[in-house]
């Protein structure tokens, strides 16, 4: 390939890239992934357990009890580009269990999560369903604004309905 041919080809390629970029920028729905942050992202703290304030439970008498915890959500796909749209991603739960001897044990759970449910205008407050799928169980709860309710059924801390608030 001669030098002039190379320069001509390179110039044409540059022009082509610019043209294609202009066309695709004008057609965002087929060319641009969503990049807006989800309102789920961040730290959600357990405020109540079965209606009782978290971190205020008495010493367990028989089995270990859930004491306190947070869930950190991180969205890796949001399909409609609104903060409260359908989303999926990774959740890490960090929690503490109070044991029979009064000591605390900290532990973590990782899970994939899905949020579904959509308001008509996409922006108003809505109730969404949150599904957390871990190795041995799946739990589904609801989210409205900055409040989330997870009816738990877990071998470590029994049936406990957790109410979480975004921090």
């Amino acid at each position: 390939m001669s030098r002039s041919t190379f320069v001509k080809s390179a110039s044409f390629s540059l022009l082509l890239v610019t043209s294609i970029f202009a066309v695709t920028a004008a057609c965002e729905e087929i060319t641009q992934p969503c990049d807006s942050a989800s309102d789920l992202d961040g730290l959600w703290r357990v405020m109540t357990i079965n209606g009782q304030p978290a971190m205020n439970w008495p010493l367990p008498t028989t089995t270990d009890r859930f004491h306190s915890g947070v869930i950190e959500f991180y969205t890796d796909f949001n399909d409609d580009c609104t903060p409260n749209g359908n989303a999926e991603g990774t959740a890490v739960a960090i929690y503490a269990i109070r044991k029979n001897d009064g000591s605390f044990q900290s532990d973590r759970i990782t899970a994939r999560f899905w949020r579904t449910g959509r308001s008509q205008d996409g922006n108003s407050l809505r109730e969404s369903t949150i599904t957390l799928k871990a190795t041995t169980y799946t739990v589904s709860g609801t989210q409205t604004g900055i409040t989330m309710t997870l009816p738990g059924a877990h071998p470590k801390f029994g049936n406990a309905t957790l109410v979480l608030v975004k921090q």
Binding site: S13, L16, I20, F21, P33, D80
Partner: peptide, 30 residues
């Protein structure tokens, strides 16, 4: 688009599910 030995283009991947409005990945190639 291809001219002699140079090419440029665009590629996108999208979930084939109802309600999905945007691709999850879009890439340019030169």
């Amino acid at each position: 688009a291809k001219y002699k030995s140079f090419y440029a283009g665009f590629s996108a991947d999208r979930f084939l599910e109802s309600g999905v409005k945007r691709p999850y990945r879009a890439r340019w190639i030169l």
